[in-house]
Simulated assay, not measured.
Amino acid sequence: MRVRQEVVRIPILPFGLVNAHLVLGTDGAILVDAGLPDTQDVVEQALRARNLAWSDVKLIVVTHAHIDHAGNAGRIRALTGAPVCAHQGDLDHYRQHKRMTFCATGAFGRLFYRTGLIQRAYEPFEPDILLSGNQTLDLRPYGVAGTVVSTPGHTCGSLSVALDDGQALVGDLISSGILLGGIALTGRAKRPPFEDDPSRVADALDRLTAEGSLHFFMGHGGPLPASEVRRHANRLRQGSGKRSAGTSS
């Protein structure tokens, strides 16, 4: 029988607009995503609410290099002393050596990009644990039953955390709600404002559900059941086919 681990959503911004997450294991916790720059007080409040301190965070997993997920990684690493795990595909962006590209998925994404907020620079950092290709990281040494897996598509270097109890933390592979995400209509999956490759996102989501992920936590909105995630992956495949057909003609 698999023991269900507690996943704590940390509202970096209110109403589920931007989320980080704590996974509480048998011996401390791991933090999945670090949030926007200078939001460490929100993370500390979530720790204190469960009688935890910075030193109880054993690992920081950054799902991808967008500022709302990676922007405070350097600061939180300094506070916790925990290593940061990330993927090579986004390394140049963590180092702030290269600007990211942003493929808008709709009108809100195009408008949001024009505000310049998503393009802001943040404190560069060097990941302590750098995965490449399809490498995985076993989380048991950090007190959590699960694995960090490569799930490219939102960005080249996107990662997800697949817990052994069927819970998954997938960053921005999927979102729900209105505008950026959250606020309302959070039970229905949608594409995030930006997405590099919807076909690869669909592959990653299908792989996670096929391997037993049942309950999905995300950076914007959610959480969502596997049935809704599969339905979204199917819609992505159908949309990708239409885009490909239109391009080839």
Score class of each variant (00 low, 15 high):
L131A: 12
R99M: 11
G106A: 04
D138Q: 07
P193I: 05
R200G: 04
E211D: 12
G221L: 01
P193T: 00
V229P: 00
K190P: 05
T209F: 03
F216N: 00
A184P: 08
S150M: 04
L169T: 02
R110N: 15
L224E: 12
L173P: 00
Y142K: 06
M218H: 07
G187C: 06
S150Q: 07
G177S: 02
R95G: 08
L137K: 06
V149K: 05
L214V: 14
A121F: 09
G146I: 01
C156K: 15
D206R: 09
H154I: 10
D172F: 08
G146A: 14
K98F: 10
P193G: 04
Q135N: 08
G171F: 00
V170D: 15
L179R: 14
V149S: 07
D172A: 07
T209L: 12
M218P: 03
H93V: 11
A226M: 02
F216R: 00
P225C: 11
V229W: 07
E228L: 00
G153D: 11
D128K: 03
G166W: 01
L180H: 14
K98D: 13
R120I: 01
E126I: 09
L139I: 11
V144Q: 13
I174V: 08
L169K: 01
L169P: 05
Q135E: 14
G222F: 09
M218W: 11
H93C: 09
T101Q: 12
D138M: 03
G133V: 02
A162N: 09
K190N: 15
T155A: 04
T105V: 07
L169H: 03
G171C: 00
G221S: 09
H215D: 14
S160R: 01
G143V: 04
A145D: 15
C103Q: 12
R191V: 03
G143A: 08
Q119H: 10
I178R: 13
H154T: 06
L163D: 10
D138V: 08
A107T: 13
R99V: 09
E123A: 06
G222D: 12
V144A: 15
V161Y: 15
R99Y: 14
L163Y: 01
S158D: 14
G221M: 00
G182N: 00
R99K: 13
I118M: 10
R191D: 03
T155K: 04
G109P: 01
L137E: 13
D165F: 12
S158A: 13
H93R: 03
A210N: 14
R200Y: 06
C156G: 15
F217P: 05
T115L: 06
V201M: 01
D138N: 03
G166D: 14
L117C: 08
D165V: 03
S158I: 06
R110P: 08
L163N: 07
